[in-house]
């Protein structure tokens, strides 16, 4: 084979590999275009999660004491939201108590959101613990607040609060039965289409993303 043909074969192989890579990414990653219309938004959003390591410019009010030293789960979600919606603002409730988050604190957080007139709240937490109190709260307040919650990253047949009625469960697995109102993505790997690109993985990001995407301009 002549040198020219060899070069051509290598180039074709390279193009094919690149093509396969692009198709693979397209099938396995959700691309998110940053939303720039937040300035016109009148909906108030909230996030209930664990502690924060420091102040965030997109938090309008919070009960957090910033005691954490490392970047926390809550920090990462707020960072993601600032990537997705540049000038977003969120009410943030730190539901962590002694390094755990229990139903009692979750309920207090939900009520805190309601008292602050938050219209949509996102909870990127999951438990197998069913609480009648939480279920009742969701039913009683469904007209006043829209709750989004992440399904567990690992598939679970019991998954709360995402599985409660009047909660919009957000996940990425088709294995379990979900409610009609739930939003199931094809996977939980996200790339925010900004400069530089940022890669996020986990259902934790899907719930707040979905909350803002579905309500920001409504």
């Amino acid at each position: 084979m002549q040198f020219r043909h060899k070069c051509l074969a290598v180039i074709i192989l390279f193009i094919v590999l690149i093509g396969i890579g692009i198709i693979y990414i397209y099938c396995n990653v959700i691309f998110i275009k940053p939303d720039t219309n937040i300035g016109q938004n009148t909906v108030s959003f909230g996030i209930i999660d664990g502690g924060l390591s420091g102040e965030h410019s997109n938090v309008v009010d919070t009960n957090a004491n910033y005691e954490e030293k490392k970047l926390t789960h809550g920090d990462k979600i707020l960072n993601f939201m600032s990537e997705y919606v540049f000038d977003s603002s969120f009410y943030y409730y730190d539901a962590e108590d002694d390094n755990t988050i229990s139903t009692d604190k979750l309920l207090v957080g939900l009520q805190w959101m309601l008292d602050n007139n938050v219209e949509c709240v996102s909870i990127s937490l999951s438990s197998k613990f069913y609480s009648e109190e939480v279920a009742d709260w969701m039913n009683e307040n469904s007209n006043d607040i829209k709750v989004y919650a992440s399904y567990s990253n690992t598939v679970n047949s019991l998954d709360y609060p995402a599985s409660y009625n009047n909660v919009i469960g957000v996940g990425s697995s088709a294995k379990i039965e979900v409610k009609e109102s739930d939003v199931i993505f094809r996977n939980s790997k996200l790339i925010v289409w900004s400069t530089p690109f940022r890669f996020y993985s986990g259902n934790s990001y899907l719930a707040p993303y979905c909350m803002v995407r579905d309500n920001i301009n409504n």
Binding site: G21, S124, S201
Partner: peptide
Amino acid sequence: IEDVYEEQEAITWTLVITAALIITA
């Protein structure tokens, strides 16, 4: 069943915009 809520794993890092993006991703 413990009354504990767990964070759903979150991994994040920045990727440089180069041809390596595909492989890295």
